[in-house]
Simulated assay, not measured.
Amino acid sequence: MSSQGGRDAAPTPRTPFDRIGVAVLRELVETIVSGRIPQGGLFPPEAVLSQEFGVSRTVIRESMKRLQEKGMVTVAQGRGTHVNPMSSWNLLDPLVLTSLIGHDDALGILDDLSVVRGALEAAMAAGMAREHDEDGVARLRASFELMRASMEDSTAFREADVQFHLIVMELSGNLLAENVARVLFERALESTRYHGVDRARAFEMTMAEHEQILAAIEAGDPEAARAAMDAHITDSWERRRLPTAKRS
């Protein structure tokens, strides 16, 4: 609907969320993910939360709106704010995913993340092999050679390793898979649990796996590239996975 003069009505400006509001939102997400308020549970009234956090009711109200946007709660006037089942949460939301990984004592979320990441990156490796762009392959080989040159420097090696994967994502031609995989990858890299422990000869095995991926892409063999990438992500996670965290 247009306003007078034929101009569209300006959208209602959203309340800015300052650092205090961000901190409150993060704590509320942690409260849900940790189970302090379980799925199906009810949040305390707005006035109680305002007093507990020492912030205005406006900040609490805006935080609840943002939790609702993430699928974590349902706000019903007169019935309060209930925590939704996990199946409703936006698990790709950076704040939600970071919190889930942080509370993932059994590493189940990271196990699932590795499976999904493996499937997505395998599809993207196949896509890059199918396109077989010479400039792109040259970039990928340069990243691989940087890994080889950095094997005595763990920080540089890991940075080159990350770049190898980001190049495959970028040049896959699959923007949706790239977007989802980047979210998963970036949130995982923030977690010390995801980095796990380095086994003996871990870098050598990683190099061999990357070499198989590179060779398949250079050969223009999508299925070999798919298999090599999927195996690499699965096997490298199994090597790093902390032994104290047992699967249920």
Rank of each mutant, 00 (worst) to 15 (best):
V55F: 03
M169G: 13
L67Q: 03
A219L: 11
F53A: 02
L49G: 07
P38M: 01
R226E: 14
T244F: 15
T155L: 03
A156Y: 06
R36M: 00
L166A: 15
R14D: 09
P45W: 07
L91P: 01
G41Q: 07
T12E: 15
S248E: 14
E62M: 12
V162D: 14
V96I: 00
A225D: 13
V24E: 01
R26G: 01
L107H: 09
E30N: 12
A227Y: 12
L175P: 12
D135E: 08
R66I: 00
V96G: 00
R26F: 02
F43K: 10
P222R: 08
D198I: 01
T81M: 11
V180Y: 14
G40V: 06
R117A: 04
A156F: 03
D161L: 04
P94F: 10
S154H: 02
R57G: 08
E145T: 02
W89M: 01
R26P: 03
D8K: 10
R240P: 00
H195R: 13
G118P: 07
V137A: 13
A219T: 02
D18M: 10
G54S: 11
A119M: 14
A245K: 03
S99A: 14
A156N: 12
A129F: 07
T98G: 14
A215S: 13
M124I: 03
L97C: 02
V59S: 04
L175R: 11
L100N: 04
A23H: 04
A76M: 13
F157R: 10
G136D: 14
V180Q: 12
A76S: 15
D111Y: 04
G40R: 06
P243A: 08
